[in-house]
Amino acid sequence: MRARLRRLTAGERQFIWMGRIAHVAGDGDCHRCVRLRVWGAGKNSQVLQADLLSKAVLPWGCATDDSYPTPRDVREVIDYALAHGWNPDLVGGAYLLGEDASGFELAGFLLTDRLRDDGAPDPTVRVLQAFRAP
C-alpha cells in the first residue's frame, strides 16, 4: 500500500506531510504511535520528523486506538519546529522533534523517542501520567 501524502498550506508555503502508523511496547501495554514526516521545500528538503504517541487509554490498548493527527495537529508541530530551528529549505537530513521539546504539547498526543530508541522512557507510564493530569 502506498503512503498517502497530504498537503497543508501555512502562510506562503505549502507543506507535504504523511503519517505512518506504528505501535510501541511499554511495560504495561502496547500504544499507537504515528510517525509524522513533513517536507517544506520538495522531496529533497530537510524533513521534519516527530513520533506522536497517542494519549488514549483504552481497554484493549493499541488494538482499538484509532488516533491520527489532524491537519491542525500537523500545523502545531510545524509551527513549533519552525520556531525552534527547523529550516525546511535545507537540502537533506532530518530535523527530529523528540521528547526533549520543551513546552510542546498536543491535545491527543505526546512526543516519543521510543520508535528510535528502545531505552527511551516507558510510553505506558507517560500515557498514564498524561491521562491523570488535570
Rank of each mutant, 00 (worst) to 15 (best):
M1V: 10
M1F: 09
R7H: 08
R7F: 02
L8W: 00
A10C: 08
E12H: 08
R13Y: 00
Q14L: 06
Q14N: 08
F15Y: 14
W17K: 02
G19Q: 01
R20L: 11
A22H: 11
V24M: 03
A25Q: 15
G26R: 07
G26V: 02
G28K: 12
H31M: 08
H31P: 07
H31I: 04
R32G: 14
C33H: 03
V34G: 08
R35D: 13
R35V: 08
L36C: 11
L36V: 07
V38W: 00
A41I: 02
A41T: 03
G42W: 05
G42Y: 06
K43T: 14
K43A: 15
Q46Y: 00
Q49V: 12
Q49W: 01
Q49A: 12
A50Q: 05
A50S: 07
A50R: 02
D51R: 00
S54W: 00
S54G: 09
K55E: 13
K55M: 13
V57A: 14
V57F: 10
L58C: 10
P59E: 12
T64L: 04
D65W: 02
D66R: 13
S67H: 07
P71C: 03
R72M: 08
D73V: 01
V74Q: 03
R75S: 14
I78M: 11
D79H: 01
D79T: 01
Y80A: 13
Y80C: 09
L82P: 04
H84T: 14
W86C: 12
N87W: 00
P88F: 02
D89N: 15
L90P: 03
V91N: 12
V91W: 08
G92V: 02
A94P: 01
Y95H: 14
Y95V: 10
L96Y: 06
G98D: 10
E99H: 01
E99D: 13
A101Y: 03
A101D: 05
S102Q: 10
G103M: 01
F104E: 05
L106P: 04
F109Y: 10
F109L: 07
F109D: 13
T112L: 03
T112M: 04
D113T: 06
D113K: 01
D113Q: 07
D113C: 06
R114K: 15
R116I: 03
R116W: 00
D117A: 06
A120N: 08
A120V: 04
D122L: 06
P123F: 06
V125Q: 14
V127K: 10
V127E: 13
V127D: 13
V127Q: 11
Q129M: 08
A130W: 03
F131K: 11
